[in-house]
Design a protein around this nucleic acid. Structure first.
Length: 100
DNA sequence: CAACACAAAGTAG
DNA sequence: CTACTTTGTGTTG
């Protein structure tokens, strides 16, 4: 997928593009923390800005922004339809979230 | 300056 | 561990 072009076509900034690119690299059934994404793009202190980029994610269900959680194991938030609920649902369906 | 989908460190019990 | 406070970061208004 040429996200880099699609994202930029959306008017996203270089930072947000990198974040989404790193997020699109997350394998199914696994999860990453905002901090890890921040590290992946060489901005380990921008864990907060990382969330902002995911919030702007124009390809919500396509880019696994739902596979991104907080470092303390918490789900975090979700801008797409459903919110946190859908986030958990997707993680459960993929097996990333083991409630039991 | 203010607001946000966070993280790390310090203080207190 | 749990709860609260402070500082850092990047985009947008």
């Amino acid at each position: 997928m040429n996200w880099k072009t699609k994202l930029k076509a959306k008017g996203l900034s270089n930072f947000e593009v990198k974040v989404l690119l790193a997020t699109a690299r997350i394998p199914k059934g696994e999860t990453r923390t905002y901090s890890q994404i921040a590290r992946a793009i060489r901005k380990p202190k921008s864990s907060r800005a990382v969330g902002n980029a995911l919030a702007k994610n124009p390809f919500a269900p396509q880019i696994p922004c739902h596979r991104v959680i907080k470092s303390n194991g918490d789900i975090g938030n979700y801008s797409a339809n459903g919110g946190r609920k859908t986030k958990m649902m997707l993680l459960k369906k993929e097996g990333a979230l083991r409630n039991g």
